[in-house]
Computed example of a mutant assay.
Amino acid sequence: MGHTNMPLNYSCTRPQTDKCRSSGLQPYSCNDNLNNALGSIRVLGLELIEHELKPHLNTVLTNIKEGQKGAAEQVVVSGILPILALSLRSRGPLTLLTAKLVAELAKESVVRKGFGDAGLVTALLSVLTSSDQELLLHAVRAIARMSYDSSKQQELLLRRGAVPRLVAILLRFPEKETLEEVCLQALCSVSGMGVAEEAGMVWERGASVRPEESVFHGVSPHTCGFASSVILVRASRWAPGQYAVNIEVFQRCSSSFWSLHGNKRTARWFPFSSLGSCSNLSSMIKFPGRNVPQTKSLKTRMFHTFL
């Protein structure tokens, strides 16, 4: 297949950095390696040839992880997101590296806004059936990050069946703590009950009094000594292939904070029926606050889901 190698030109207008000066580069050439990598991915991407694409994907990953100024915007302009989605779906040699890159890109709001249109949401969900634990770790982390503060992404993930897939991972890998924690973070983020990754949420498996129920609780450190978030997640098996997921969020306050602000919180019960009930699900998502009872205890969402 022939291609016309059209270089992608991006201008770097930032001041000359110490790194540039020490390497002898001109100010406008600081991101030349990134520009070339993005251009090569766009030209070669449809063929997904590992030995040709791998170094370019690594270059982009390095720039994003190091927080290079303007790198995220360059990724958006380059138009490589659909190629990353294709790589994830292919389940080929590049899939793991691509999942790592997508997880890093999901930190950047300017990039993750385009995940839906680029097909990355459905591509990430397709990865969740894999048995590769490292691949699952990065894919789930990407889902947690992209949905944390985006109601649009949350709705799309709910419609596409993210919850049952995430629950399935919890059940398949009960002894893998890192994967378990990331999966719980993703469940909370998709449900709109998430806590920022920077909060340092610590998860533990709790005791259950019901048969075939898994209980997890997560605690974030106190913020400025006043309050911390406590999340309780219960995953229950009702019947073969049918599970209920209940997510509750509490605010644990210090005595001084408590005396100032009292104990006022809201409660939610949010049912998630079968994967096929998109019309009912849509109406509940559009009006999540309608007829919500007020209580003094917690904020809750419940998903009834079929695997």
Rank of each mutant, 00 (worst) to 15 (best):
Y10T: 01
V111I: 15
V202K: 13
P93D: 13
T13C: 03
R234E: 03
N5A: 09
K176S: 06
P82L: 07
Y243F: 15
G39Y: 05
F115Y: 10
V60C: 01
T17V: 07
N246M: 11
R268W: 06
F287Q: 10
I285E: 04
A72G: 01
L53Y: 03
T13E: 02
Q294G: 03
L166Q: 11
G206M: 14
G45N: 07
E50I: 01
R172H: 10
H51G: 00
C253M: 14
N35I: 04
L97I: 06
T17D: 07
S90F: 03
H3G: 00
L101G: 01
C30K: 12
R42N: 09
Y10R: 08
A72C: 05
R205T: 12
N63F: 12
A227M: 12
M6T: 08
P271A: 12
E180T: 13
K296S: 09
A144W: 04
E104K: 13
S29A: 10
F303I: 06
P27C: 10
L307W: 10
L34I: 09
S220Q: 03
D149T: 02
K176F: 12
L120D: 00
L232S: 02
V111C: 11
L124V: 02
R172W: 08
S236T: 06
Q242K: 14
L232R: 08
V209R: 15
F173D: 01
G45P: 04
S279A: 14
L86A: 13
T59D: 06
S126G: 10
T266S: 12
P55K: 15
L275E: 05
R268L: 14
L170Y: 07
K19S: 03
F173M: 08
R89V: 00
A72I: 03
M302C: 11
A99N: 07
T223S: 14
L137C: 01
R205G: 05
R290C: 08
A85G: 11
S131N: 09
S87E: 09
V127Y: 01
M6Q: 08
A207E: 14
A162G: 04
L158C: 12
T129A: 11
L124I: 01
L157K: 07
I64T: 02
L156V: 08
M1T: 06
W238A: 05
S282I: 06
K296N: 04
R234D: 00
N31G: 02
Y243E: 04
S126I: 00
E134T: 07
M6R: 13
S150H: 06
N58Q: 14
S254F: 07
V233I: 15
H222I: 05
V245F: 11
A123C: 02
Q154S: 08
G119W: 08
K19P: 00
E212F: 13
A196L: 09
S11E: 05
Q154D: 04
V182I: 07
D18W: 11
Q16E: 12
V76L: 10
V167G: 10
A199F: 08
L170T: 05
S282K: 11
V230P: 00
R160Q: 14
I143F: 03
S255M: 07
Y243H: 15
C183P: 02
G119T: 10
N5L: 12
H56P: 00
G289K: 11
G116L: 15
E134P: 00
V111P: 00
V163K: 05
L170N: 07
V163F: 06
G192R: 13
L184P: 07
P164Y: 15
L158N: 11
